[in-house]
Simulated scan of single mutants.
Amino acid sequence: MVLLVLGALTLDVSLVVFRVDRVAVALPEGPGTTWVLVGLDSRAALPEGASVEDFGSTDEVRGSRADVVLIVHDSGEHTSAFSVSRDVVVSRRASPGRLALSWLDGPQSTVDALCGLGVAADHLVAVDLAGFAAVVDAAGGLDVDVPEPVRDRLAGLELPAAGPRHVDGATALAMVRSRHPEHLVGGKWVAAPEDPDGRATTAGTVVSALSGAVDSARWRPWRLQSLAWAASGALTVDTGTSTGELLALAGTELDEVEVLPVGEAVDGTLARFPTDATSSALDAAGMSCG
């Protein structure tokens, strides 16, 4: 019986490992260990039950952009986590461009762009829209605090009450994708004040909540297996990252994800340039590249 159980577990682990997609990228050298986590906005794989009308088709929205970028850095003494604005200007094919657009040229372009910013990626992990929602659902949903009622019809977000909420994968994805939120004021929905860091802040909040959900799953084997199966089918990882390293990342507690400071948008555009505060934050975390 023991041999049968061990055999079944080995088969399950083998299948999980086999399901992870791999991508070859040249990773730069830098101090400590740095994970780059990228949420892609490709319309090729939509969340279960989602309609093309809500997200747009692959003809309407071509390719994949780095919609969410998070950095987790272990200096050996402490762990730092940053949510990076998708609109920060980086070097893209020797010319400036927004970080979000770097993935259109492939994952290597994003890795190189981040190196120019001062982030040396040791590991690269990417997940698409459908994969993110599936992982959240496999984790049993997320516990988040909603500071005030919010909705965003374009993103499919509808949270009409403030306070602690348990959200599913579709709602968590809508929170991260929201660009035009509205708040309930005096019984009426009004446009929320513009916040350039709003999406980066929300992404950090959601990922922190997901980290907590993953940590809780350790004590529920059935939940852990479901989570591992969903994640393995959702992730694209660089070829040099081992399964053990992925497990170590999953065990990292992200109590706080800071928004990496960058400049204000330039002349009514989306573009935001790195500042001295950007370099200072990365230096304080012990990061550098090149």
Score class of each variant (00 low, 15 high):
V2K: 12
V2T: 15
L4T: 14
L4W: 14
L6C: 14
G7F: 05
A8F: 12
L11N: 05
D12C: 02
V13R: 13
V20Q: 08
D21K: 08
A24Q: 09
A26H: 11
L27K: 10
P28F: 11
P28N: 11
G30A: 07
T33P: 00
T33Y: 06
T34G: 08
V38I: 14
L40T: 14
R43A: 00
R43P: 01
A44L: 04
A45P: 00
L46V: 07
E48H: 11
S51G: 07
V52M: 05
E53G: 08
F55A: 07
G56F: 02
S57C: 01
D59L: 07
D59P: 00
G63E: 02
S64D: 13
A66Y: 03
I71S: 00
S75L: 04
H78Q: 15
T79K: 04
S83K: 02
V84M: 12
R86F: 09
V90F: 12
R92V: 15
R92Q: 11
R93A: 15
S95F: 11
G97F: 03
L99W: 01
L101D: 15
S102L: 02
L104W: 00
L104P: 01
G106D: 03
S109V: 02
D112M: 10
G116M: 05
G118Y: 10
V119W: 00
V119H: 03
A120P: 03
L124F: 13
A130W: 01
V135F: 10
A138K: 05
A138F: 09
G140D: 12
G141C: 13
G141V: 11
L142G: 05
L142N: 06
L142F: 08
P149D: 09
P149S: 06
V150R: 02
R151I: 05
D152L: 06
L157T: 06
L157N: 08
H166K: 14
D168M: 12
T171V: 12
V176E: 04
R177Q: 08
S178A: 13
V185E: 15
V185K: 12
G187E: 09
W189F: 13
V190N: 08
P193M: 10
E194T: 11
D195L: 06
P196E: 07
D197V: 05
D197Y: 07
T201D: 13
G204P: 03
G204W: 10
T205V: 15
V206S: 05
V206A: 11
L210I: 06
G212W: 03
V214S: 03
V214L: 11
W219P: 00
W219V: 04
R220F: 11
R220L: 14
R223M: 09
L227Q: 01
W229Y: 00
A231R: 01
G233M: 02
L235Q: 03
T236C: 07
D238R: 01
T239H: 06
S242F: 06
S242G: 15
L249F: 14
G251Y: 01
G251L: 10
E253Y: 13
V257N: 01
E258H: 14
V259C: 09
V262N: 03
G263R: 02
E264K: 12
A265L: 05
P274G: 11
P274N: 09
T275K: 08
D276E: 15
D276F: 07
T278Y: 08
